[in-house]
Amino acid sequence: MEPQLQQSAQGDTPGVSAQTHGTHRTYLIGLGYALVLTLTSFWAASTDLVFPPGVPVLLGVLAIAQMGVHLVFFLNISSAPDQTNNFLALAFGIFAVALIVFGSMIIMANLNHNMMMPVE
């Protein structure tokens, strides 16, 4: 049992736990922000107070904000020195996701537009 427990990797400081886990407080703050953003999203989708064409934009902003909250408070992504690679990979991931989603939507909208029957 003892050799197994000593199986710490090269570069690991013995007895020092990872600093990339957050604390109870981090999770509770994240929960608070996420709850507020979720409630606002559901409220915005069903209210008449907001100018209707603006609702999708508002929902998009709220969703991106909530994803940010999850990344920072739950996944503990930060710009700390030992997380440089994680951060760069995330940046590339966001770029690729944006390319796939918006690229597909623009191309398909363009195709739809060109395939429409001319109105006589």
């Binding site: 990797a9 090269q10 570069g11 690991d12 990872a18 994680n86 991931g93 690729a96 996701v97």
Partner: peptide
């Protein structure tokens, strides 16, 4: 880097590909 950092990075790459 320590195994913890490398394993975390590898899994993070998997998650990003999953998100794709």
């Amino acid at each position: 880097a320590s195994t913890r950092v490398v394993a975390g990075f590898g899994f993070w790459l998997f998650l990003l590909s999953d998100i794709l």
